[in-house]
Design a protein around this nucleic acid. Structure first.
Length: 174
DNA sequence: GCCAACGTTGGC
DNA sequence: GCCAACGTTGGC
């Protein structure tokens, strides 16, 4: 697990699929490429283009339909969590890896041995205000969140149930 | 746009 | 299998 700190590794057992079988995730996106509004417009979209093995492993091995997702906008002002979505498919091979015309083409990936995976993500809600990264870093209960760790670049992150609950409070939903 | 922090690649 | 060089991410 490259790049996973000891702290995160120790806490990882608390990340996934509790008694109700549901897990929580955070997906990063650059809104000039694909925003939460874009997802709202199309309702459902394969989350393609993930080309990092740790992120891939979460998608391929752990994501399940019904899992809840925080959508995070990076490289914009304001940066932060903007709303929610839901995973609505099992993982399946990312079709863009097989297409030489695609930016995300991977010559080493073969249909009989796919390297990269997607899940379909469905729009759920947009928060009234952006939950900004700077504020999240100061929020009690989010100290160990993957997102708030220094240097954290992972674009597909697990979120603990306790962290999800804190986010719900911040979003005025609890 | 800069650049620190990450990840990956490939020579040895 | 080490690690320097390179490429990318993403906050600022």
């Amino acid at each position: 697990m490259l790049g996973f700190t000891a702290l995160q590794a120790r806490a990882a057992t608390h990340f996934h699929h509790g008694e109700d079988g549901m897990a929580y995730w955070l997906l990063k996106t650059e809104p000039n490429v694909f925003s939460l509004d874009d997802l709202k417009a199309v309702e459902k979209e394969p989350w393609d283009g993930v080309r990092n093995y740790q992120a891939r492993n979460f998608m391929r091995d752990e994501m399940k339909p019904g899992d809840k997702v925080l959508i995070y906008h990076s490289r914009v002002q304001p940066i932060g969590i903007v709303g929610e979505a839901e995973i609505v498919s099992e993982p399946y091979p990312d079709p863009t890896q097989f297409n030489p015309e695609e930016k995300y083409y991977d010559a080493k990936a073969k249909p009989e041995n796919p390297r990269w995976f997607v899940v379909d993500v469905q729009y759920r809600r947009t928060y009234d205000q952006v939950l900004e990264l700077a504020a999240l870093k100061k929020t009690p209960g989010l100290e160990n969140m993957v997102l708030t760790q220094k240097g954290s670049r992972l674009s597909v992150q697990p979120v603990r149930a306790e962290e999800w609950a804190v986010i719900q409070q911040l979003a005025g939903l609890a």
